[in-house]
Nucleic acid binder design. Structure first.
Lengths: 248, 248
DNA sequence: CGATGAATTGAACCAACTCAAACATAGTGG
DNA sequence: CCACTATGTTTGAGTTGGTTCAATTCATCG
């Protein structure tokens, strides 16, 4: 099931919606020009696999829009999501040519891909990119550690609340809205994908979603659109302390 | 409970046992000289806290010997280990002056500390250090993702086997021994710390250790010294596939 | 040798899982 | 327009792996 490569009109970096958050955030105009020359867009539809674990991967990329997940699968089929890539997040590892995880588009996704070899060269030479990549990787490590607390110690209800708050916050920040009071957004994940994120079964996810709805912590319009009447109320359900493990 | 600063004789970088694995691995002699000028050793005894979450942290460090853990604690006392630092691992984040996690010495630990401000400056200027730090951070992110699979999807028995195999492998690589056939090592963690690592209770850890012993997967001499008669047998218990998610 | 902290073991319990069935929604095509 | 899938979601009932609480054993050390 190879992903055919479509010719997609490329945006210029200057107009890019994630210009100031992505790996290129600190680049100057001349550096952007260099990036323009090694970049190409790829589009994936919801459900499509971007790369399979073990596949050769000759690019790295920024997520421009949409949501993609990194997932590990055990022989007997148990699956655990280990990364959730939202717009501006970085995909791939320079210096590695084989994907260690399945990468799947959760929604329609647009990637800004950079050919790996020249990108690697760029990193070696260009501090603005490599420094930014280090910063983003450290942020991801922090997020992974929060996630570990969630997986290891939180209850099902707390896990759901935590996931919703994470998505709500990222979504709000993308739209430059505050994440307090009433907040609403589209869930980019199926119940099954939520279960894979949280280390639960999809039945448990569904039950806890119903419970949160019953308790007026969330409202559902359709299966995917979620309204949080009071963000603080949701935060109370996450198990995190008030200052919220908010890392600076 | 401040950690008094002892005057500790410093080794020269050239003689350092982790010289070629730590953040300084790629440095040249003149760069090492620079590092020498901003480094100092600190020693911690098993059980001592290196820094508390929320504390100001004016250094970053390499673990020279011993084992330290990063732990998150929830308000009600639930604890999850989110990092295990073995010799050559890096502690702290440049550009962050407040520790996000408790750092505790699991065994006696020797740290090679670098004053944060000058280290930060060094990173900004010196590619050999910042590139190495990026590489180490990416490795840590991979490890965190393996850990997430463990926390989210593995059974108690698989969790224990996985932890033992991780420690056995790191220990072997440190001593330049192969990790196959019969392997033996000292557990640097109490049952409680193992539980915090694995997202289990200490009772479950103890029960599963007994079960693995009963099934001849491990042998115990005292509570801490462990012999694995056949490393492959242990690997079979981890739930990982044969090629072992071994990332290149 | 008692005492202290760490580890083991037992028994009852429960949160999340498994298996099974019903329901919802959006397409598809006759 | 409705029947007919296909896919995703909810709900129910019974089971279970890991927890909780409570003793007991082990090891070390002053």
């Amino acid at each position: 099931m190879p992903n055919r490569q479509l010719a997609i009109p490329q945006q210029e970096c200057a107009d890019c919606p994630i210009r100031h958050r992505a790996v290129c955030a600190r680049c100057e105009t001349d550096e952007l020009e260099h990036l323009e020359s090694i970049k190409y867009y790829r589009k994936f539809e919801a459900g499509q696999t971007v790369v399979w674990a073990g596949d050769k991967m000759d690019f790295v990329a920024s997520v421009i829009e949409g949501v993609a997940s990194l997932t590990q699968t055990m022989e007997d089929g148990r699956r655990q999501m280990v990364g959730l890539l939202l717009p501006s997040d970085f995909l791939g590892r320079p210096n590695r040519d084989t994907a260690p995880y399945d990468v799947v588009a959760s929604t329609d996704v647009m990637l800004c891909c950079f050919r790996r070899a020249p990108f690697q060269k760029l990193i070696a030479e260009n501090a603005n990119i490599s420094q930014r990549l280090l910063e983003m990787t450290l942020d991801e490590l922090d997020a992974a550690r929060e996630w570990m607390l969630l997986l290891g110690r939180k209850t099902a209800r707390e896990k759901i609340a935590s996931l919703l708050s994470i998505i709500a916050r990222r979504d709000a920040s993308l739209k430059d809205l505050p994440s307090k009071g009433e907040v609403s957004f589209d869930l980019p994940l199926t119940r099954e994908a939520m279960a894979d994120y949280l280390g639960l079964t999809l039945e448990t996810v569904s039950r806890q979603m119903s419970a949160l709805k019953r308790d007026d912590v969330i409202r559902l319009e359709g299966k995917r659109h979620i309204t949080i009447p009071d963000f603080d109320l949701l935060m109370d359900e996450t198990g995190d302390d008030a200052d919220g493990g908010m890392l600076v």
